[in-house]
Amino acid sequence: MDRIPILRMGEFLLVSIQVDLHDQLVLQLQDDLTNAVHRHAARGVLIDISAVEVVDSFIGRMISDISSMGRILGARTVLVGMRPAVAITLVELGLSLPGVETALTVERGMLRLRAENS
Protein backbone atom coordinates (compact mmCIF):
# COMPACT_ATOMS: atom_id res chain seq x y z
CA MET A 1 0.00 0.00 0.00
CA ASP A 2 1.33 3.41 -0.92
CA ARG A 3 1.83 6.13 1.62
CA ILE A 4 1.85 9.86 1.45
CA PRO A 5 5.41 11.13 2.04
CA ILE A 6 6.05 13.52 4.91
CA LEU A 7 9.06 15.75 4.31
CA ARG A 8 10.97 17.53 7.02
CA MET A 9 12.15 21.07 6.43
CA GLY A 10 13.87 22.33 9.56
CA GLU A 11 11.25 22.68 12.19
CA PHE A 12 8.41 22.30 9.72
CA LEU A 13 6.84 19.28 8.08
CA LEU A 14 5.65 19.32 4.50
CA VAL A 15 2.94 16.95 3.33
CA SER A 16 2.19 17.07 -0.37
CA ILE A 17 -0.76 14.96 -1.42
CA GLN A 18 -0.27 14.11 -5.08
CA VAL A 19 -2.71 11.23 -5.42
CA ASP A 20 -6.43 10.88 -5.13
CA LEU A 21 -7.31 10.28 -1.51
CA HIS A 22 -9.16 7.23 -0.31
CA ASP A 23 -10.25 6.38 3.18
CA GLN A 24 -7.40 4.03 4.06
CA LEU A 25 -4.79 6.44 2.78
CA VAL A 26 -6.11 9.29 4.89
CA LEU A 27 -6.21 7.15 8.01
CA GLN A 28 -2.63 6.11 7.34
CA LEU A 29 -1.65 9.76 6.86
CA GLN A 30 -3.26 10.67 10.15
CA ASP A 31 -1.16 8.05 11.93
CA ASP A 32 2.07 8.92 10.13
CA LEU A 33 1.70 12.65 10.55
CA THR A 34 0.92 12.64 14.26
CA ASN A 35 3.89 10.33 14.83
CA ALA A 36 6.16 12.50 12.71
CA VAL A 37 5.12 15.69 14.52
CA HIS A 38 5.84 14.00 17.82
CA ARG A 39 9.16 12.53 16.71
CA HIS A 40 10.58 15.68 15.12
CA ALA A 41 8.94 18.08 17.58
CA ALA A 42 7.74 20.00 14.56
CA ARG A 43 6.42 23.51 15.08
CA GLY A 44 4.51 23.79 11.87
CA VAL A 45 2.85 21.50 9.36
CA LEU A 46 2.03 22.43 5.79
CA ILE A 47 -0.46 20.24 3.95
CA ASP A 48 -0.56 20.81 0.20
CA ILE A 49 -3.78 19.54 -1.35
CA SER A 50 -3.47 21.30 -4.69
CA ALA A 51 -3.55 17.97 -6.55
CA VAL A 52 -6.65 16.69 -4.79
CA GLU A 53 -9.61 16.90 -7.12
CA VAL A 54 -12.22 14.83 -5.34
CA VAL A 55 -13.30 14.87 -1.71
CA ASP A 56 -16.22 13.33 0.12
CA SER A 57 -17.56 14.05 3.58
CA PHE A 58 -15.25 11.52 5.24
CA ILE A 59 -12.09 12.87 3.63
CA GLY A 60 -13.21 16.43 4.33
CA ARG A 61 -13.66 15.60 7.98
CA MET A 62 -10.32 13.78 8.13
CA ILE A 63 -8.52 16.80 6.65
CA SER A 64 -10.11 18.92 9.34
CA ASP A 65 -9.22 16.36 12.02
CA ILE A 66 -5.59 16.06 10.92
CA SER A 67 -5.23 19.84 11.15
CA SER A 68 -6.70 19.85 14.64
CA MET A 69 -4.43 16.99 15.76
CA GLY A 70 -1.39 18.90 14.54
CA ARG A 71 -2.49 21.88 16.55
CA ILE A 72 -2.97 19.82 19.69
CA LEU A 73 0.57 18.46 19.30
CA GLY A 74 1.88 22.01 19.24
CA ALA A 75 2.36 22.42 15.51
CA ARG A 76 0.49 25.06 13.57
CA THR A 77 -1.14 23.46 10.59
CA VAL A 78 -1.76 25.31 7.36
CA LEU A 79 -3.82 23.81 4.54
CA VAL A 80 -2.70 25.15 1.19
CA GLY A 81 -3.77 25.06 -2.44
CA MET A 82 -7.34 23.85 -2.13
CA ARG A 83 -9.00 23.78 -5.53
CA PRO A 84 -12.18 25.78 -6.18
CA ALA A 85 -14.23 22.65 -6.86
CA VAL A 86 -13.06 21.07 -3.61
CA ALA A 87 -13.81 24.24 -1.65
CA ILE A 88 -17.33 24.40 -3.09
CA THR A 89 -17.90 20.72 -2.33
CA LEU A 90 -16.81 21.10 1.29
CA VAL A 91 -19.03 24.15 1.77
CA GLU A 92 -21.99 22.32 0.25
CA LEU A 93 -21.30 19.40 2.58
CA GLY A 94 -21.45 21.85 5.48
CA LEU A 95 -17.78 21.38 6.35
CA SER A 96 -16.41 24.87 6.86
CA LEU A 97 -13.31 23.56 8.69
CA PRO A 98 -13.44 26.10 11.54
CA GLY A 99 -10.09 26.89 13.10
CA VAL A 100 -8.10 25.48 10.19
CA GLU A 101 -5.62 27.90 8.71
CA THR A 102 -5.47 28.14 4.95
CA ALA A 103 -3.24 29.71 2.31
CA LEU A 104 -3.34 29.97 -1.45
CA THR A 105 0.06 28.46 -2.24
CA VAL A 106 2.85 26.54 -0.53
CA GLU A 107 5.00 29.65 -0.64
CA ARG A 108 2.44 31.78 1.18
CA GLY A 109 1.75 28.99 3.63
CA MET A 110 5.44 28.86 4.48
CA LEU A 111 5.51 32.63 4.93
CA ARG A 112 2.66 32.34 7.36
CA LEU A 113 4.36 29.64 9.40
CA ARG A 114 7.65 31.55 9.48
CA ALA A 115 6.02 34.85 10.37
CA GLU A 116 4.42 33.36 13.42
CA ASN A 117 7.46 31.41 14.57
CA SER A 118 10.16 34.03 14.20
Partner: peptide
Protein backbone atom coordinates in the same frame (compact mmCIF):
# COMPACT_ATOMS: atom_id res chain seq x y z
CA UNK B 1 -21.05 29.96 1.65
CA UNK B 2 -18.98 32.06 -0.72
CA UNK B 3 -17.01 33.54 2.17
CA UNK B 4 -16.33 30.09 3.63
CA UNK B 5 -15.23 28.65 0.29
CA UNK B 6 -12.84 31.56 -0.14
CA UNK B 7 -11.42 31.03 3.32
CA UNK B 8 -10.91 27.32 2.62
CA UNK B 9 -8.83 28.22 -0.40
CA UNK B 10 -6.69 30.53 1.68
Amino acid sequence: KTVTALRLMG
